[in-house]
Amino acid sequence: MLTIESLTKRYRTGTVAIDNFSLQCSAGVVGLLGPNGAGKTTLMQMIVTLTRPTSGRILFLDHDIRRDPNFVRSRLGYLPQDFGVYESVTAFAFLSYLGGLKGIHSRQKVMEVLESVNLHASAHVMVKTFSGGMKQRLGIAQALVNDPDLLIVDEPTAGLDPEERIRFRNLLTTLGRNSLVIFSTHIVSDLAAVAGRIAVLKKGKLITIGTPEEILSSAFGKVWEIVISSTEFENQKSKLRVSSAVQKADGVHVRFVGSDGIPRGAAAAEPDLEDAYLLLTEGARPS
């Protein structure tokens, strides 16, 4: 469905945001994971034709999106990280506008999408009265209004309350049955819940791609827990790759990842996706 071949984005300042990146995806939910500045947003901006690659190409349903950008645009739903809305119009008007630009002129369709994000009761309310979470849901609605074949969402769950987050994750799972959803987030648990495959990026390069189970398996035997005093923790914390540290009555419960220099008394722990991510981004060198 989507093929990315040797994609590179180099800014005029010389910064390489994406470096010889290749990926193939079919229908399903693909999660993008990586530290800040890894190039996730730039990669998404190139897929949605917002910015042009320096070299390489992106094919969507065998169409080169650089040559025929409107092919992908007409089948695309996009929710950027820092998107905005017009404050002085109603949710319905805003969605009808963006739907209209995508060729959707049905009022019923607009209402259906608003209902899918639980905004139908506020359809005719001015957007300026919306909370941050409601605006985020309106953003999600505009991405879904044209029943996209390719949905690109950048940090979509930021600002959503737990209930809405679960609702949105379920929506993505449903969409992922027939469409390709590329989903970037820092909330690893969101990815674990919906992504069929996870791609980990660092410094513009793809470190690894696999199912959550495959990513997780790379961390087996490399996650540890130890209870130490506060003083000892202060001494150790620069030496350990700490994934969490909780101060309790009996000392600091430290969870860390690594295979070398494990302090005496540390016990192996069951890894989770966050541990695996830490190991991959801190330890691995991009290939």
Partner: peptide, 15 residues
Amino acid sequence: LRTGVGKLIAATPLS
């Protein structure tokens, strides 16, 4: 540009 709606518009087929 300021509101960020521009990015949403740029991703539509509108020329």
